[in-house]
Simulated assay, not measured.
Amino acid sequence: MTVIARYRIVDGEKLPKSGAFILAPNHFSEIDPVVIGVVMWKLGRMPRFLAKASVFKIPLGGRLLRAAGQIPVERTTNARGAEPLKAAARAADEGLAVVIYPEGSLTRDPDLWPMRGKTGAVRMALEADIPLIPAAHWGTQLVMPRYGRKISIFPRKTITVKIGDPVDLSRFRGKPITASLLTEATDVLMADISQLLAELRGEPAPAERWDPAKNNQQETGRF
């Protein structure tokens, strides 16, 4: 990844140096997790990702995931509600830095702006009472375009990543965690991510975020 791209990190000091938190970046390329992982490593934190529990059953892959401290999450309907809470508790107890893509899948927005978010990242932050850090990156699409499968190695690309201030969730904490509260808090998170990306791109974000449901797009995202 160092050969493929140079990394320009803006406001990297805003990433907590210790303690648990959730990092919520934008998502428009399949290689995004690797890029974010490299950036977090450069900033001195080991990234943890939520991975399907079934992957941990693969002999070699499972051992590597466990050795790297990644977090298994069941994808069954019965477990879907409880598993994020277990992951949140583990993050808080062990002081982990967990990466969650709030969009759930690659953005469907035609211009690669963040689309409507899912509530998993906010729910974990509220349940565990840990900071929720927004982030945005730009340039990754030059390494691997959205829906692409080939990596462009030459010429070397520049990827810029901007870390934001913790999302202000103060008005949501200490209240019953309802669907409406999670939706409202997720809108705040997505607005923060969009603003960071707008600063990187040097242009304003769309006034309305792309909504897959309204645009007849099928969501196939992860938690």
Rank of each mutant, 00 (worst) to 15 (best):
P114W: 03
G62H: 03
D168I: 10
T76S: 15
L112Q: 05
D168F: 13
A89V: 05
G104M: 01
A205E: 03
D129R: 14
P84N: 07
A136R: 04
V122Q: 07
T2M: 12
G81K: 08
Q70W: 02
K14T: 13
R209G: 02
V99W: 00
A198R: 04
T183W: 00
R173H: 03
K150A: 15
L132S: 01
M40T: 04
M40W: 01
R222N: 15
L182R: 05
R63G: 14
T160F: 01
G202P: 13
P134F: 00
K162L: 06
D32C: 08
F21A: 01
M115W: 01
I58M: 14
L85A: 08
K175V: 07
L196F: 01
F223E: 06
A121Q: 06
V55H: 12
G120D: 02
A205W: 01
E219Q: 14
V98C: 01
I71L: 13
G37D: 08
T77P: 01
D111Q: 13
M124I: 04
A92C: 11
V99C: 02
W41R: 15
R156H: 03
G44S: 09
P16V: 03
R201V: 06
T220D: 12
K214G: 09
R222I: 02
E199K: 07
R222G: 09
W210D: 07
G174M: 05
P145S: 11
R8T: 12
G37Q: 11
V10Q: 06
L60C: 10
V143A: 04
M124S: 08
L200Q: 09
V167Q: 04
S170Q: 10
Y7M: 14
Y7G: 11
T107R: 00
A67M: 08
Q218R: 15
R171W: 00
T183D: 12
L126F: 08
R149N: 13
I151E: 09
L23F: 06
I151R: 10
K214N: 09
F172E: 03
P176R: 07
K157Q: 15
N78K: 13
P114E: 04
P134V: 00
R201N: 05
K175D: 07
D11N: 15
V122S: 08
P176C: 10
A51E: 08
M144K: 01
T183F: 00
L96I: 06
L196N: 02
D165H: 13
N78V: 11
F49H: 14
P212L: 02
I163K: 05
P114T: 04
E13A: 15
E203H: 10
K42D: 11
A53R: 14
T158S: 12
N216E: 14
W113L: 04
